[in-house]
Design a protein around this nucleic acid. Structure first.
Lengths: 353, 353
DNA sequence: GCTGGCACTCGGCGGGGCTGAGTGCCAAGA
DNA sequence: TCTTGGCACTCAGCCCCGCCGAGTGCCAGC
């Protein structure tokens, strides 16, 4: 039971520190929380918590501050679910309703803004993975004698385009023929399967003795395969950088790392790595990385709260991608976690329609 | 000639202040610049410049700092063109070469990054205006009984897409017929003309007594008209927010406005207004707005250097859109101006191919 | 019109002293 | 064994002060 109280003290320290942004002392704790014991007792508990590495003092004779490890314990064992406020719930539902007729780009754009606004942090949404989706249609449009636009349309309504410069002229007749052949080969297949199936198309032309055309065809096929490949789906959208700056105003240590945080966000490669190397906690459906756990140089003062979205709630379809937020380690985890989870769920619903 | 020297003093003050970020005094000026007169003379000149509102003292007994008006005079009359370094020139040329086979999105993405890197500021690139371009092709792809994807392809290779939910079922035969009719109506026309020409399509169906189909057709036509309209071209891409944060580290006044700057950048509406209300100076081909001239609340500490791009160098084709940078008023204007101009020219070339 | 000289101003810096929040430890009580 | 009040101790933050020096404006002389 003494152990229970120690954890209650840790929870109180985290909550107060998040609220005030100042190291919290033993007296302030008993004043603000009905702990039922004296400051001296709290001090003993604090000493124990410090031994365990859960809290730390910035300097002698200052209050305590949670460490990354302290936040970890708080998140894993202490934070109850904070239900969303009616206003928040309404904002999310509005997204769901309004999005019915929007295209994917706009849905994601709105989602990321909503998440940034709810959490007052930087929000990121990864583009949905295309691996589950199928090819609906391929279109070739001549732009010039040796140039065509290749447009790939999937059954989720996503459109990919490539400008292709052929090595030789592409007569209208060949374009028309190739359009038919490509559609026959790939329509209805999953993207990865379609890419493989295309391998034979160019060789057909070689076999038919039309080696001149085969060269041009190879170029077009290669572009289509590239469009089918996973490269283009590796994108994230981001919103709420201004929230970061505002957080930095009240927190000089975080302000210093602001530049590095912005850099990481702008480097899509970095964000994608962070998003993909993470796995949701089965019970909460959310992943929380705290401080150094984020495993990126400039983000040691930063936590990453993310959740998978897409797929089906029943779990019989794999999720499509992840979304989440990035903010100072000192954040309101219960609120953030429920916001991220709620937005992920609603986005899943929206995409299922 | 005394007047000439006063301007030389202003130039020296601007240059030193930009370099050191500290108020510059009379002694420091004569040391660093071969002005050929004594500090006392400079002090008289400074007093005159201050009377004219071109420089100011943060407090008595500190050096002088240029005002917005001072920067204005510097930019208009004093700053020579600073040629790009060979390394910079090479970086820009590499963009030109590599971009040959990329699509528009990627070209702009690279351009904005390049500009951010060259200037060490936040770079913005507005998407090219579509008003000059023509419709190349319209494609309709059924997604479900009442849903189609509408894809619009222009002769610049730009692709716009819309998911359209019809009020009633859209049978395959109608989709095919409509595809042909739409293409017959709009292909080869300019976007704005095409939107007008579409007005008659729906009425054709009504006239033919097919009022059931007419309703569905109207929905599709409306979506296409919206895609043709100017709404979707109103986009900007942005890069280099981290540069801003870095600038803020050495400059507390600017750090305070950092949040507002990020907000303005994220609000595309704001950036678009700023970009469109600006006109290039005919002699330099660049527009420079300094501090309050930017005419936006959060950007009084910020300058905006932009240039039109696209069109033709000879001027016989109107430019397509603008690109530029946003940074603290205290920036290296000659360098920034030549970078912005150079990138705008190269992007024009790239898009002309 | 330029220059050297001179008195003046005032922000920034470093030192010293005080305050108060917060701690650790201890001995006594439940 | 745990809790509690008491007590001595530490130390960051703050204020005050005095000094320094950069920088100024003005003036008389060239």
């Amino acid at each position: 039971m003494a152990d229970d109280r120690r954890l209650a003290v840790l929870r109180a320290i985290v909550e107060d520190y998040v609220a005030t942004h100042e190291p919290v002392g033993s007296k302030a704790l008993v004043d603000r929380h009905a702990l039922g014991v004296s400051p001296a007792t709290i001090r003993n508990d604090m000493a124990a918590l410090e031994d365990e590495g859960l809290i730390a003092q910035p300097h002698t004779s200052a209050g305590r501050v949670p460490t990354d490890k302290g936040y970890r314990v708080f998140v894993d064992r202490l934070s109850g679910v904070k239900p969303l406020s009616p206003a928040e719930r309404r904002a999310i539902e509005r997204l769901l309703v309004d999005s019915a007729s929007l295209d994917l780009d706009e849905i994601l754009e709105r989602t990321v803004r909503l998440l940034a606004q709810l959490t007052q942090q930087v929000a990121v949404v990864q583009y949905p993975s295309l691996s589950q989706t199928q090819v609906r249609h391929v279109e070739l449009v001549p732009l010039g004698p040796r140039r065509v636009v290749l447009v790939l349309i999937t059954d989720t309504g996503r459109v990919e385009q490539r400008v292709v410069d052929g090595p030789v002229e592409l007569p209208e007749s060949l374009v028309t023929e190739l359009r038919g052949r490509l559609n026959a080969t790939v329509v209805g297949r999953r993207l990865a399967d379609a890419a493989l199936a295309l391998d034979v198309v160019a060789t057909t032309y070689t076999a038919a003795g039309r080696s001149g055309d085969a060269e041009a065809v190879r170029t077009v096929v290669a572009a289509l395969q590239q469009a089918l490949g996973p490269v283009r789906e590796q994108r994230v959208v981001m919103a709420g950088a201004a929230n970061l700056a505002r957080a930095g105003l009240h927190d000089t240590t975080f302000a210093a790392s602001l530049g590095q945080v912005l850099e990481a966000i702008e480097e899509q490669v970095v964000m994608l790595r962070l998003l993909t190397e993470v796995v949701d906690d089965p019970s909460s459906g959310v992943s929380v990385r705290i401080g150094r756990e984020v495993l990126h140089e400039g983000l040691t003062e930063t936590s990453l709260v993310t959740s998978a979205y897409g797929g089906s709630a029943a779990g019989d379809a794999a999720p499509l991608a992840r979304l989440g937020i990035l903010g100072p380690t000192r954040m309101d985890y219960p609120m953030t976690i429920s916001s991220v989870r709620a937005v992920a769920r609603y986005l899943t619903k929206v995409l299922a329609t």
